[in-house]
Design a protein around this nucleic acid. Structure first.
Length: 799
RNA sequence: GCCGAAGUGGUGGAAUGGCAUACACGUCGGUCUCAAAAACCGAUGAGGGCAACCUCGUAAGGGUUCAACUCCCUUCUUCGGCACCA
């Protein structure tokens, strides 16, 4: 017979909810622990990814609570966004109705998993009580000129009919629908995240408990590169062309310069020259090629001569000016100095177009004397040559000296370029936070006054997915009065990107009902920072970077006194089926709901934690789930056969297990924690145990299989919840074995094992080991050269 | 190209200088049963040997060490991020 998981799970879920078992409140006397999992988009059904993410969080949360921490473990919904609009178009419903229905369904599913959320803190970003504060934050940023509007080339997804942030373009496609992203000239709202670039980069050092790859990704994305802007004078003109380089040490080797085809100076440079027509044709050709094709690394570098020359400021040498497709207008100054001897791209280009080369850095060993001998550019370290007064210096030293010298001579300026761009946040969509701005024909751009917030999203909008901001078609919404001059004015009709909503929700959880500010400063002082954050790696850049940015902004508003929101970050691996990510299109989805129906939530939780460590990918294994279920049944049967007295050997095992499981839980190594619980269970199953030992086993298992353990706990006669008990402590004395088994090696190879007392002296041990028959046969009468003893572990005899 | 992570039985994985393969899945054999399921017991890296045992074995090669999956060097492969970034 199997234990009745259906009844048991229903019973305890009801009880936990009725007693408010996981309600958290500020208590200065107790140490707090804020555990947060990335909140979901309410699609209606939870998938295995959610199950894994939230199970990891739930176990950690329940464990910390048993350890005595005041734990906050909230849940909410990232409820604005495009799927609601798409679903509404398809089903002819309203996005709000669809979203609320999905939230209801999802709450039910999460409750069925037995997660220990404080449901009283639940938030939905689509509630005006929430998005009002998005608008408030936007206005604060607007006041500080961190929110601004500008016209420029923007990423446009033709399928979603909206703009996208740089972070939302993945491999040239829309992050949501993968449609190829186009460029469009539009006037849009931006957040000046670049204002925070130095802090966003430097503070990565504080994040000691983040996975290295996430730090690396953020580092890459911010993309700092230090170098020099060098001013080349245009021959026969007083105009200068700044070029950016990270290698000022190679300036004496610059034999030509190259501009991006879109560079504003290009037209002047080619005008009237014999090369004009060829150049214009080339520019036209390049402008027709999309950025993605152009940036593919295997494409041959093409370019043309402009017919003009520039003067290298360090040696007054005249160098030809070229245009080439491999120079990008978006980076640096849109122009480079080419040093073919020390840059591989320049080398290939110079070979192709027969441009001059000059060596300026020689490696210590095997130096090449003439540029003709080079088969590739030398990009390594060496000593300066052909570099005027810098000859003989190691190039790393020259890099600094030349840069400083150029700045003194006004040949250039030391400069840092960044990859990070400002964050485009306006979207031409309906289901999002209205941007609180009014356009007045007299006063211009006017922010909505704070007391008029929220600017509510109208319940109805004629959206069809066919372009244009849907809010623009709602007269009642658009037409308003200017807050300043009270004349007729129009509202902004774009809404905010949904990543705005999730950039500060972790603060809202501290005081979800607070109505005077986005969050109660006092509550946040107690609960923040988030001690443990758990979520998918797909948010390594987007959400985590934006949240760090907002946190620094709140710090500048003096609302908080920390700089980073998340202390520890765990990025859980994906759940795979047959080696592939589960997806609807592949038809390889395993539905959590049917697994709960057949084996119970506790078995599902147990399996998903046991099958792999949290960070690595997890291969779904139906038989593994059955194995988890079998294990729980085994534990159940122990309860039916409890003895009155405990076995001393079992007691020892128990204390070893407590030590191991405590360490493993603290380090999020649930798979090995479960393995040792299984080992203990196996020996108890054979030797039996008493109620006291069994109770401790149950407490250790309870974070993983909460319903199951609550039920057995009650059967044992306890009147209060197992989660009101405390985590067992191990007795150091019981970890010590009187007799230990020692491994005996000869020349590092295992040859024998002997039983000895734990405190045996080295001399006595030596005597015993040499007497051992197996050892003696390996020694063949030779006397040992060396005798290595690792106490209570191993002996190695070297002969 | 730069940066990051990883590579261990048939499978998921364990061991972070000291018994390689814990725990589980699978497979095989057995107990119980009219039979099956469940449950229980046992075997299970490869090769050799009747056996006691022996040899090999953690992507490949080299090094450090009494001792290396673990540390160092070189190389290969896989995954992820950035990238004609000057």
């Amino acid at each position: 017979m199997y234990y009745d998981f259906k009844e048991i799970e229903k019973k305890w879920q009801k009880k936990w909810l009725a007693t408010g078992a996981f309600r958290a409140s500020c208590d200065q006397k107790r140490k707090k622990y804020y555990l947060l999992e990335m909140f979901p988009y309410p699609s209606g059904k939870i998938h295995m990814g959610h199950v894994r993410n939230y199970t990891i969080g739930d176990v950690a949360s329940r464990f910390k609570s048993l350890e005595g921490y005041n734990v906050m473990h909230p849940m909410g919904f990232d409820a604005f966004g495009q799927p609601a609009e798409n679903a509404a178009i398809k089903n002819k419903t309203k996005p709000a109705d669809w979203t609320h229905k999905c939230i209801k369904e999802m709450e039910t599913e999460l409750k069925k998993m037995g997660f220990s959320y404080d449901w009283e803190r639940e938030i939905s970003t689509c509630d005006s009580d929430y998005y009002k504060w998005n608008q408030w934050i936007f206005l604060k940023m607007f006041e500080r000129k961190l929110a601004y509007k500008k016209a420029s080339q923007v990423n446009w997804c033709p399928s979603c009919q909206t703009t996208l942030a740089n972070e939302e373009v993945i491999e040239g496609g829309c992050w949501r629908c993968h449609t190829k992203v186009e460029q469009k000239e539009l006037e849009q709202w931006y957040l000046k995240i670049t204002e925070y670039k130095e802090r966003l980069l430097e503070d990565l050092d504080q994040l000691k408990n983040w996975p290295p790859r996430v730090l690396a990704m953020q580092n890459n994305w911010i993309g700092k590169s230090s170098g020099v802007d060098i001013y080349f004078r245009l021959k026969g003109s007083d105009k200068t062309i700044p070029v950016f380089t990270t290698r000022p040490d190679t300036i004496f080797g610059a034999t030509y310069i190259v501009l991006a085809p879109e560079h504003p100076l290009v037209k002047d440079l080619i005008k009237g020259n014999p090369q004009e027509n060829t150049a214009l044709e080339f520019i036209k050709k390049i402008s027709g090629i999309s950025k993605i094709v152009r940036s593919a690394s295997d494409v041959k570098k093409e370019g043309v001569f402009t017919g003009s020359f520039a003067v290298n400021p360090v040696n007054n040498e005249e160098v030809p000016i070229w245009i080439a497709d491999y120079v990008l207008m978006e980076y640096g100054t849109g122009a480079i100095m080419a040093v073919p001897t020390h840059d591989q791209r320049d080398f290939l280009f110079a070979k192709e177009h027969k441009l001059p080369m000059r060596i300026v850095i020689k490696p210590k060993d095997n130096p090449v004397n003439s540029a003709q001998e080079l088969t590739e550019a030398y990009e390594g370290q060496g000593v300066q040559v052909n570099s005027g007064k810098f000859d003989g210096l190691p190039n790393e030293e020259a890099k600094i000296k030349i840069a400083q010298w150029m700045e003194e001579q006004a040949f250039g300026k030391i400069k840092t370029h960044w990859r990070l761009r400002d964050w485009l946040i306006s979207r031409q969509r309906y289901w999002g936070t209205p941007i609180p701005i009014i356009y007045c024909p007299v006063c211009g751009v006017v922010p909505v006054p704070y007391q008029d917030l929220p600017v509510k999203l109208p319940a109805d909008a004629p959206f069809t997915g066919e372009g244009g901001s849907p809010l623009g078609k709602v007269k009642k919404f658009v037409e308003t009065k200017c807050p300043k001059c009270k004349k007729e004015a129009k509202r902004e009709t774009d809404t905010m990107a949904t990543f705005f909503d999730s950039s500060w929700y972790f603060l809202r959880f501290c005081s979800p009902g607070f109505d005077k500010a986005p969050f109660d400063v006092e509550e946040a002082r107690y609960w923040m920072v988030v001690d443990q954050y758990i979520g998918g790696i797909e948010h390594a850049i987007l959400h985590l970077l934006y949240s760090r940015f907002f946190t620094k902004f709140f710090q500048d508003l003096k609302m908080i006194d920390f700089t980073e929101p998340f202390d520890k970050l765990l990025t859980q691996g994906m759940v795979l089926k047959d080696g592939e990510v589960m997806s609807k299109s592949k038809g390889n989805i395993v539905d959590p709901d049917s697994m709960i129906k057949n084996y119970g939530a506790d078995s599902l939780r147990l399996f998903i934690l046991f099958a792999a460590p949290p960070e690595t990918e997890l291969e779904w294994d139906q038989r593994g789930l059955e194995g988890a279920f079998k294990f729980l049944n085994r534990v159940w049967r122990i309860q039916e056969n409890l003895k009155n007295t405990g076995d001393p050997e079992i007691l020892r095992s128990l204390h070893r297990t407590i030590k191991k499981v405590s360490e493993d839980f603290a380090g999020f190594k649930f798979n090995t924690a479960i393995a040792s619980l299984m080992e203990l269970t196996n020996s108890i199953y054979q030797l039996g145990c008493d109620k006291e030992i069994f109770s401790k086993l149950l407490i250790m298992l309870s974070p993983i299989a909460p319903h199951f353990c609550e039920e057995l706990w009650e059967i044992l006669g306890n009147k209060t919840s197992i989660f009101k008990s405390s985590w067992p402590k191990f007795d150091e004395k019981l970890l010590v074995e009187e007799k230990v088994e020692l491994v005996v090696q000869v020349n590092g190879k295992l040859r024998s094992k002997i039983q000895v007392g734990r405190d045996i002296t080295e001399d006595k041990l030596k005597e015993l080991v040499l007497k051992d028959e197996k050892v003696a046969s390996w020694l063949e009468g030779k006397s040992p050269k060396k005798f290595i003893v690792v106490p209570r572990k191993l002996v190695n005899i070297v002969i």
